[in-house]
Amino acid sequence: MASNDPDREEEAAAAGEDEDTGAQIAPIVTLSEVAVTTGEEEEDALLDLKAKLYRFDKDGSQWKERGTGSVKLLKHRETGKVRLVMRQAKTLKICANHLVVRSIKIQEHAGNDKSCVWHASDFADGELKDEMFGIRFGSVENCKKFMEMVEDIAESSGKNEEKESNDAAEAAGLLHKLSVDESKTEEKASEKAPTASAVKAEEKSEAVTKAEEPSKN
Rank of each mutant, 00 (worst) to 15 (best):
E42A: 12
V82R: 02
K52R: 12
E19V: 00
D57L: 06
G22Q: 05
G80L: 14
E33L: 06
F56V: 08
V29K: 11
L74N: 07
R83P: 01
H76K: 14
A23T: 11
A12C: 02
I28S: 12
Q62G: 02
Q62Y: 05
K72I: 03
A15C: 09
D57V: 01
D18K: 15
T79C: 09
A35W: 03
L84P: 01
A26Y: 11
L74G: 09
L31V: 13
A26R: 10
L74W: 06
E10M: 08
D59T: 04
E42L: 04
G16S: 10
A23I: 14
V29E: 12
T68R: 13
M86D: 05
E19I: 00
A14D: 10
D59W: 00
A45V: 14
R55V: 07
V34A: 13
T30E: 15
L84S: 11
L74S: 06
G16M: 07
G60Y: 01
K81R: 14
T68F: 03
K52P: 00
A35N: 11
D18Q: 15
G60K: 14
R77W: 03
V36L: 10
E10H: 04
L74K: 06
E40Y: 06
E19P: 00
L53M: 10
L49T: 04
D20Y: 06
K50A: 07
T37M: 09
A51H: 02
D59Y: 01
R83T: 03
L31D: 13
E78W: 12
A14V: 13
K64M: 04
D44A: 04
G39D: 06
A26K: 10
E19A: 15
K52W: 01
V36Q: 10
A23G: 00
K58H: 07
K50D: 10
V36R: 10
E11P: 00
Q62L: 13
T30H: 09
E78D: 15
D44K: 10
R66A: 13
A51L: 04
Y54I: 12
G80Y: 14
G67H: 05
E65K: 13
T37Y: 13
A26Q: 13
K64Q: 12
A14T: 11
L46E: 07
S70V: 14
E41D: 14
T21D: 15
G39F: 12
E11H: 05
L53G: 03
I25V: 15
I28C: 04
D44T: 05
S32T: 06
A13P: 00
E17D: 05
G39C: 11
S32I: 04
G22N: 08
E11R: 04
L74P: 07
E10L: 13
G16L: 11
I28N: 08
D59S: 09
S61L: 15
L73C: 06
K72Q: 15
W63Q: 06
E10R: 12
D44I: 03
